[in-house]
Structures are given as C-alpha cells and as structure tokens.
C-alpha cells in the first residue's frame, strides 16, 4: 500500500501484526535496565531490537517499502489507531509480569506465525520463515527462564496471580477480526487451540495453573507510555536534529 491510497485488508492485517511486535519490542528495549541480572538485560535489549526489526519488516510489506509511510505509521499515528493486543502493551518492570507476558506472547506468536506461514501469501511466508532463527531463541529464553524461576516455590507464587490475569488476555493475539485477510479464521482458531493446549500443559508441568476465567483486567497505561516515548524520540531521529 502506498501513502495516500486506501488501505487494503491485507495491509491492515500486516499493520496489526507489526503493531504487536512494535509494542513488545519497544517495551523490551525500554525495560532492559530492570532485569534481575546484567546478562538478562543484554538479552532483553537484543530481543527487543529483534522484535522492532520484525515489526519494521511487517510495516514495510504493508506500505510497499515506502519509508515515509512507515515512519508516519510509527511516529505520527494516534495511539488509538494502533492495533496491537492489550497484552503487547503491558509495560511493567516487575520480573513476574515481564516473564509471564513474554512467555505467553512468544508461545502464542509462534503458533500464529505457523498459521500464517501455512497460508498462500508467499511474501509473508518467506518473511516469517526468515524471522524464525531469532524467534527460536526468544522462545527458548522465556521458556528457560520460566522453568528456572518456577524451581523456587516462592518465585512461582509471584507468577500465578499474574497468569490469572494475563492468560485470557493473551488469547486476543488470535483475534480473527485483525488477521482474517492473512489467515483463514478456522486455521487461526486451530492455532489458538493448539497454543492453549501446549502452553497449559507446559505451565501445569511447572506447577502453574491456567485459570478458568480472568482474575481481573490487565494493567493499562502501556500504550500511553509507549506513545509518549516514541513522540519524545521522534525529534531525535536521523535527519531531524
């Protein structure tokens, strides 16, 4: 899609995918000083930059590589026009929130990308296939740290209340309305079920229990905070100072 033309359903769906990775990537890079160790902080920053790169690739596909349109989409869109899922905006420094959010996002996103890769959009299939070598690490990182954190009963007790709130919210990542132009709703729905089954089994094995219903609403404010930050950064972008 070029600037000034009406947005196609495919472009809108690509932007929704991009917005999820943009929100997750921005938050990861921003909290990279708050992880429990230097080593974790280095990884948070690196994974955040990976996600921002993936979002850039989705935006580029949506806007036919029009750099001005991509920059406008990132820096000049109103917050209310971003289509990321609520869990993607979650912006909490606490390790239990970051860990549960990232585990749910990465495991769900892996199933979502798998559904997209099985579709007929060869450009998109190639794009998500290229992302896999980085995404494999993200998945291993969050699964590994979740397992390690759950080895301590006291730490696991901090994770359960977060899971009680975040589990159902994460299912928005498979929202058919956002991605119908990229994936058949039945394929996306099957991917969601497969994710829920696999993630619930893994979480149960670690001593965590997937809740029947949400224990409350996700904390808000992440979207507004990200908007404030990117609008503060915009004047400093290359070519603007």
């Amino acid at each position: 899609m070029s600037a000034g033309t009406e947005m196609s359903d495919r472009a809108a769906a690509l932007i929704a995918l991009a917005d999820d990775d943009f929100a997750v990537g921005h938050v990861l890079t921003s909290v990279s000083g708050f992880g429990p160790s230097l080593e974790i902080n280095v990884a948070l920053s690196s994974m955040g930059q990976d996600e921002l790169g993936h979002s850039r690739a989705y935006y580029a596909a949506a806007f036919d590589d029009d750099r001005d349109a991509i920059n406008r989409a990132i820096y000049e869109r109103a917050g209310s026009d971003f289509r990321a899922a609520g869990i993607s905006w979650l912006y909490d420094h606490a390790w239990e929130w970051l860990l549960i959010k990232s585990y749910l996002f990465e495991t769900a996103d892996a199933h979502r990308r798998g559904a997209i890769a099985r579709g007929n959009d060869s450009v998109l299939t190639e794009m998500v296939t290229r992302m896999e070598s980085e995404e494999v690490y993200h998945l291993d990182f969050w699964r590994g740290w979740l397992a390690t954190t759950c080895e301590n009963d006291q730490a696991a007790d901090h994770l359960q209340p977060v899971l009680d709130v975040a589990w159902h919210a994460a299912q928005e990542l498979f929202d058919a309305d956002r991605f119908a132009a990229l994936v058949e709703p039945s394929v996306l729905s099957a991917a969601a079920e497969s994710w829920k089954e696999e993630a619930a089994a893994e979480l149960n094995q670690l001593g965590l229990v997937v809740p029947d219903k949400a224990a409350g609403a996700l904390p808000t404010g992440g979207l507004e905070r990200v908007m404030d930050e990117i609008h503060a950064v915009q004047p400093m972008a290359p070519g603007r100072w």
């Binding site: 160790s37 230097l38 080593e39 974790i40 280095v42 990884a43 690196s46 994974m47 690490y137 291993d140 990182f141 590994g144 740290w145 397992a147 390690t148």
Partner: peptide, 20 residues
C-alpha cells in the same frame, strides 16, 4: 564469563552476550 543459575540459562546468556 556469564553469571546464571544453571547451564540452560547460562547458554541463553552467553549467546546474547558474546555472539549476538
């Protein structure tokens, strides 16, 4: 060197610390 609680998390840390 990296600091980590076990071999799995040490490998995760080492990858991003030294070969990213």
């Amino acid at each position: 060197q990296v600091e980590a609680p076990n071999g799995d998390t040490a490998t995760l840390a080492a990858k991003e610390h030294f070969v990213r």
